[in-house]
Write a protein that binds this DNA or RNA. Structure first.
Length: 443
DNA sequence: TCTGGGGTCCTAGGACCC
DNA sequence: TCTGGGGTCCTAGGACCC
């Protein structure tokens, strides 16, 4: 892999993959130093909870991300399991990206805790990619107190594999420090790749690995003798082409700096599964609110809405619809979501409900134009009347957003947001505009 | 006590248009 | 009038990533 004898130039190995160590758990330890040295994990605490991130102390017990929290607790009874503060992780992630941006503007985030960088534009400056990686790693440690592994290679495939090799790992219960920065030597990369299991390749998960196993293909080396057509019959043409290229060490994926968001949504697995339409409707209303606020917060509108339902037996159903105008309002989302959910036969209790918006476009006002008179003539086609209702709600929503921006989140609420319980709770806290504290005053 | 929640991309069939 | 082919959009489901 990395050979200390000869360092690659920036044009030989221009791609960096930076992967933060145990990111969520590390942020929790930074914010509460009393957790240092203890097994810490972030994840759902309930019986349906899953681990999202585990400190290396927790990993020594076998705790891994994507593992059920129940199993994690059995493996490590002293585990400190925290619920996760994603806004806080977002702050750290932005600072992480800021340090990367100081190195190069050509970087591509993957989730909150990884980035690819392309250093080719720095070639004229005589940048040494290995030194650049060490420098970034030092700054991450000195300024953010975060650790990371960095892979340096000629393409994304090898950079990602190398960053994994650069990270600390647990071997028979002991923590082994990683090298921190690993580069893939051009002379040995093919040899190294050949002996990896196919599962190590990006895009090969349990299902694809099982299909390849049925063809007798376990190692990357095994893929090399197989034609794309043969692979395609098992895994489809797209995956087959990717596998053939990866097996040859080829990966032409670029580092893309501006990936527009394609979809966003919210889903929830309930501690107690929902039974009946009424419980479903209540949950759907909450989710429509979350999705609508997310859309408006990003100045986006959606044309397609999808409702996802998973029953207790694991069966999953989705219903989606595309409309001719931009959705970003809670009422409009809810109306459509209810219609979609209504077309799902409730064959059991619902353990997961999700609402996803796609077909996203920047919000321009087009299709949201307030139309007068507010009530569209009844002879208008249903689509036009729906559009008009949407426009009214959008105008109202804008006003509400503006009031909240100026006077605070709790300055007002719609009746729909105030369930009997919610109103009571809000009033007790003095948060309701007509609660004990009376109306809020500006500034 | 087998599996969360944020996303991306691919596939396959049907509708519709040219 | 019947038939074919290609392109695009929509819908439902699945696999994968972090």
């Amino acid at each position: 892999m990395s050979s200390p004898s000869r360092r690659p130039g920036v044009l030989e190995a221009p791609i960096l993959h930076v992967d933060l160590d145990a990111f969520f758990a590390s942020v929790e330890v930074l914010d509460d130093p009393s957790l240092a040295g203890r097994p810490v994990a972030v994840g759902g605490a309930g019986e349906r909870g899953v681990i999202a991130s585990a400190s290396y102390e927790a990993r020594r017990y076998g705790v891994r991300s994507a593992m059920s929290s129940a199993l994690a607790r059995r493996l490590c009874p002293s585990l400190v399991l925290l619920p996760g503060r994603f806004e806080r992780y977002g702050e750290y992630s932005r600072r992480f990206h800021g340090l990367v941006a100081d190195l190069t503007p050509v970087y591509e985030p993957l989730g909150l805790d990884e980035v690819f960088c392309d250093l080719r534009s720095l070639a004229r400056l005589g940048v040494d990619p290995i030194e650049a990686a060490h420098g970034l790693r030092r700054r991450l440690h000195d300024e953010l107190r975060l650790r990371c592994g960095i892979g340096v290679a000629r393409n994304k495939l090898f950079a990602k594999l190398a960053s994994k090799a650069a990270k600390p790992r647990v071997e028979s219960g002991r923590l082994v420090e990683g090298e921190g920065v690993v580069w893939v030597d051009g002379a040995t990369e093919e040899l190294w790749l050949a002996t990896l299991p196919v599962r190590a390749l990006w895009g090969v998960g349990p299902a694809t690995a099982a299909k390849l196993e049925r063809l007798g293909l376990r190692l990357v080396r095994d893929l090399r003798g197989v034609g794309a057509a043969t692979l395609a019959r098992s895994v489809g043409p797209s995956m087959a082409a990717t596998l053939v290229a990866f097996a040859a060490g080829e990966d032409d994926r670029e580092v893309v700096t501006d990936r527009p968001l394609k979809s966003l949504g919210h889903e929830e697995t309930f501690a107690r599964s929902l039974v009946g339409r009424r419980e479903l409707a209540t949950a759907l209303r909450a989710q429509a609110g979350v999705v609508a606020r997310t859309l408006r917060g990003r100045d986006l509108v959606a044309r397609t809405l999808t409702v996802l339902v998973r029953f207790d037996d694991g069966a999953q159903v989705s219903r989606s619809q595309t409309v001719g105008y931009g959705l970003d309002d809670e009422g409009a989302l809810l109306e459509l979501a209810e219609a979609l959910a209504g077309s799902v036969e409730l064959v059991g209790a619902v353990r997961l409900l999700g609402l996803h918006a796609s077909g996203l476009r920047a919000r321009t006002g087009e299709g949201l134009q307030l139309r007068l008179p507010l009530e569209a003539p009844a002879e208008d086609p249903p689509e036009d009347r729906a559009r008009a209702r949407q426009a009214e709600r959008a105008a109202l929503r804008d006003a509400i957003d503006e009031v909240r921006r100026r006077f605070g989140r709790d300055a007002l609420a719609t009746a729909g947001e105030l369930t009997a319980d919610g109103l009571e709770v809000a009033t007790q806290r003095g948060r309701h505009p007509f609660g004990p504290e009376g109306p809020r005053t500006p500034r």
